[in-house]
Simulated scan of single mutants.
Amino acid sequence: MRTSTWIRQHLAALRALLVLTVITGIVYPVAVLAVAQVPGLHDKAGGSLIESGGTVVGSRLLGQSFTDSGGAALVQYFQSRPSAAGDGYDPLSTSASNLGPESIVDAPDDPGLLTTVCTRSKEIGEREGVDGRRPFCTESGVGAVLSVIGPRDNRGEVTVPVQVVSVNEVCPARPFLGAYRSVRVVCAEPGADYSQGRMVPIPGDVPAGPQVPADAVTASGSGLDPHISPEYAAIQVRRIAAARGVTEAQVRDLVAVHTSSRALGFLGEPTVQVVELNLELDHRYPYSA
């Protein structure tokens, strides 16, 4: 009796295994493949590939870097947003930097998020001919952060500063601020630890709304974002037009063609598809060095 029950249970399990194998291993994949061939879905199912001259040059879903071998921006192309995926836009290493708002102090040879943003904003401002300054950044392009050292009250606030150090400006750099609460600000000695002090970011006397937009200085969560904001595209128009010998109006017209509005009219923000935009620039207004 026990043997008969054992056999029936295993036969039932075997039948369930076979049925589920057919459904999930054959029927479902075939159904998905069939749906993927429906007109309007085939391109997306195939990876939304972009072809130029009969050659696949990218995907509408994946961004690309438009830089030279040294990482410098190519003047004739719109630049994508920064990428933390591998060496940049590596689909096999998709990731974010994992740096957050508390990453304001640099480690040796490893800048924090604040300095990374400040450095990028300064470089973009110089490249695009706009004001690259932003709050909590020094003129040299590092995080404007002070370590204020001294006795503290019960809330952790320093009552009487004894020493003030610009932690992201290593000696012999000249600190961005001369004095803080009547105490002279000094540069950071290489390798010194100033974590005992209270870290105080200094906003500085700069415009509250930076001309360099946030997506120009921060990477996306995947590191593969193929889009930039219309604001980032707008500050690049002058450079592109000058490099290709066309008018800014002609370049803006192409940007408008490759700008998508909010999904359903209210979800997300308008975006510009960088890869397709750069390909059309090459097609319409070829660049010659």
Rank of each mutant, 00 (worst) to 15 (best):
H42K: 15
G53D: 10
H227I: 01
P201M: 14
V105K: 09
R244F: 00
S182I: 09
V251H: 02
G150F: 01
A85W: 03
E102F: 01
L20E: 11
R8K: 09
V142F: 09
Q273Y: 00
H42E: 13
R284I: 02
L18H: 09
S182G: 06
D87T: 10
Y77W: 08
L18K: 12
Y180E: 03
S260N: 07
A34Y: 02
Y180F: 15
A107P: 03
G129S: 08
V251Q: 04
R155K: 11
D87I: 07
L224H: 01
A34Q: 14
S121K: 04
D153S: 08
A144K: 05
T218P: 00
G40W: 03
A263K: 13
R184Q: 15
M1L: 10
Q37L: 10
S48C: 08
I228W: 01
P135Y: 07
A31E: 12
P226D: 00
A107L: 15
V274W: 03
A188I: 02
T116R: 07
V22N: 09
L17G: 14
R239M: 09
L62W: 06
S166F: 03
T259Y: 00
E123G: 05
H258R: 06
V158R: 06
S95P: 06
P101R: 05
D90Y: 00
A188Q: 08
G132W: 00
W6R: 14
S103C: 10
E102N: 14
E280N: 09
A173W: 01
V162G: 14
G221N: 09
R81Q: 07
I124W: 05
I235C: 08
S93A: 15
C187V: 11
N278P: 03
A144D: 12
Q163T: 15
T55F: 02
A72S: 13
A241V: 07
G178V: 07
I23P: 04
I124Y: 04
D90F: 04
A84M: 12
V57H: 11
A107K: 15
K44D: 14
S97D: 13
S195A: 08
G197P: 04
